[in-house]
């Protein structure tokens, strides 16, 4: 008897939870549009956003210990203003010693990186990578001119 009730309860509860989770078509459209328009307006590709996210994590983890997977980076629109929203679940702030240590580590890592680059500079693969990244940078420039990054003025009034 108890089992039957339990089963029924789970079914009913499950039903409501499902209904809650399911987003309607309109909200899906609005949310998808918001994201795609932010990309259109700023010309920031998902790859660039991901890169920005990575660099922000690197910088911020010097000062705080955080849940890196839960970090959220989004564009949001409020009226005519666009904002970059960063939400970081902080586990704990680091103390001064740790920050100093982290700084030293980064310095060490950077100098090591530099050495590596100097060593590998003459290799072909590296040269290719460099030229590729240059091309990307060049391609980005004319696009930016076209884009409507500037906040909308009240022309429509």
């Amino acid at each position: 008897m108890k089992d039957i009730f339990q089963d029924l309860f789970n079914k009913v509860f499950g039903f409501f939870r499902q209904a809650e989770k399911e987003e309607n078509a309109k909200d899906t459209a609005v949310n998808r549009l918001r994201v795609v328009l932010m990309q259109d307006r700023t010309n920031l590709t998902p790859e660039l956003l991901e890169k920005m996210r990575g660099e922000l994590i690197e910088l911020l983890s010097k000062y705080v210990e955080m849940d890196k997977d839960a970090l959220e980076l989004n564009f949001e629109q409020e009226g005519n203003q666009m904002a970059l929203m960063l939400s970081i679940p902080v586990l704990r702030a680091k103390d001064e010693d740790e920050i100093e240590e982290a700084e030293n580590n980064i310095d060490d890592a950077e100098s090591e990186d530099d050495e590596e680059i100097i060593e590998e500079d003459s290799t072909e693969t590296d040269a290719e990578e460099n030229s590729l990244s240059e091309e990307v940078a060049e391609n980005d420039e004319p696009k930016e001119e076209e884009s409507n990054t500037k906040p909308k003025e009240n022309k429509s009034k």
């Binding site: 328009l37 259109d40 307006r41 884009s147 409507n148 500037k150 909308k152 003025e153 022309k155």
Partner: peptide
């Protein structure tokens, strides 16, 4: 339309 508005703004 958003794209067009961007071009009109310019």
């Amino acid at each position: 339309a958003d794209r067009i508005i961007g071009l009109l703004e310019a």
